[in-house]
């Protein structure tokens, strides 16, 4: 009797389980049959009323049925959960082409990039970085650089004077004298001095009343023009590429003698219509020279013992050449559409 009943029950459950479509419904079925108050429990209750000798056999039959139902539900449950999870994940599908959260780093201003590049070339060569005031005295900006009052070279640099003796520095070269004077032990010097400078120029495509320079100064015994040439060659190759050459041209600065203008070879391969070198094959990048003995003397270095060289980088010009700017004003308007192009040059 019981056996048939259990068999019927199995079939009944089997049918229900087959029909079921969600894990939730299946949980209800599990409750109906397997919970404490469920169908299987009621069988167990009835077992109390059965003769003792029959109990083990019938108990085993009930348990077997219970296990059968339990397995049946479990395996179906797993099936359904798998399907349901699969469906859920399908529903959760996103458009992976949309952009991620914005973690983009920003860019340094291109002129600051060039300044740091140049510093990074010189520092491993044993140079230290020296800075000084933009509001400068006439003495440091001119007189200590062998440019006395009424010197024709003063006309080369129209100056923003604040008072008779105070001005906005027209060049970072003043730091030569500052550094030499500050070095009271008169030991050798190797310095690089970046900074803003100012001249009374109307702003146009090639002029700016504010711009940036980097002064480099080496003072020691037996420093030669060949040392300057070697240093310039190294810098040009690191700044513009290993294939670049340099060329020195005679020039004039009151604080160097001899003085040179330095050209770097153009990358255009002798293109006669090249807009950068104008077909000459050479691009003027900076001025340099051997420190004038008067400059050494005025700052306490004996020119009979010491010699030196100085280099003046025009950061604006190098930035324009390196990255192809054609209007210097674009270096100062802080258009983020421009600056953001330099993110990888940090």
């Amino acid at each position: 009797m019981l056996k048939e009943k259990l068999e019927t029950l199995k079939q009944e459950v089997q049918q229900k389980v087959d029909k079921v479509t969600s894990s939730l419904e299946l949980s209800d079925i599990r409750n109906e049959y397997l919970s404490k108050k469920g169908v299987m429990s009621s069988f167990m209750m009835e077992l109390k009323n059965v003769a003792n000798d029959q109990k083990p056999i019938m108990g085993q039959m009930i348990n077997e049925t219970k296990n059968f139902i339990s397995n049946l539900i479990d395996s179906r449950m797993k099936e359904l959960q798998d399907i349901e999870l699969e469906n859920k994940l399908k529903e959760e599908k996103i458009d992976i082409t949309l952009s991620g959260y914005n973690f983009k780093s920003a860019s340094k201003h291109p002129m600051n990039i060039v300044v740091d590049d140049i510093i990074n070339i010189f520092v491993p060569l044993g140079y230290s970085v020296v800075e000084g005031p933009e509001v400068e005295t006439d003495k440091y900006n001119f007189e200590y650089l062998n440019i006395p009052k009424n010197h024709p070279a003063r006309a080369m640099q129209d100056t923003f004077y604040i008072t008779e003796n105070l001005l906005l520095r027209t060049q970072t070269s003043g730091l030569q004298a500052r550094a030499m004077q500050a070095n009271t032990l008169k030991t050798p010097l190797k310095i690089i001095c970046p900074g803003k400078v100012y001249r009374r120029d109307d702003d146009d495509a090639t002029h700016s009343h504010q711009f940036m320079q980097i002064e480099t100064l080496v003072v020691g015994e037996h420093v030669t023009l060949a040392d300057l040439k070697g240093t310039l060659d190294l810098v040009a190759k690191k700044m513009f590429g290993e294939k670049r050459e340099i060329r020195l041209r005679s020039s004039y600065f009151p604080f160097t003698e001899p003085s040179v203008e330095v050209d770097v070879s153009c990358s255009c391969n002798n293109n006669k219509t090249c807009p950068v070198c104008k077909g000459t094959g050479w691009i003027e990048i900076l001025g340099a020279g051997m420190v004038h003995p008067n400059v050494l003397k005025m700052s306490g270095y004996d020119p009979n013992i010491y010699s030196g060289f100085a280099i003046g980088f025009g950061v604006d010009r190098i930035t324009m050449l390196k990255y192809g700017f054609d209007d210097i004003r674009n270096l100062y308007n802080n258009d983020l559409r421009v600056i953001s192009q330099f993110v990888k040059e940090r």
């Binding site: 510093i119 520092v123 060569l125 044993g126 140079y127 230290s128 970085v129 030991t187 050798p188 010097l189 190797k190 080496v218 020691g220 420093v223 030669t224 023009l225 060949a226 040392d227 300057l228 040439k229 070697g230 240093t231 060659d233 190294l234 060329r247 020195l248 041209r249 005679s250 040179v260 060289f309």
Partner: peptide
């Protein structure tokens, strides 16, 4: 002519260098 000037490396050593 400046082409006649060789390239050499400035060998002066400084005790302190780099960034402050």
């Amino acid at each position: 002519g400046f082409d006649s000037v060789p390239y050499s490396t400035c060998l002066i050593n400084t005790s302190k260098y780099g960034l402050n």
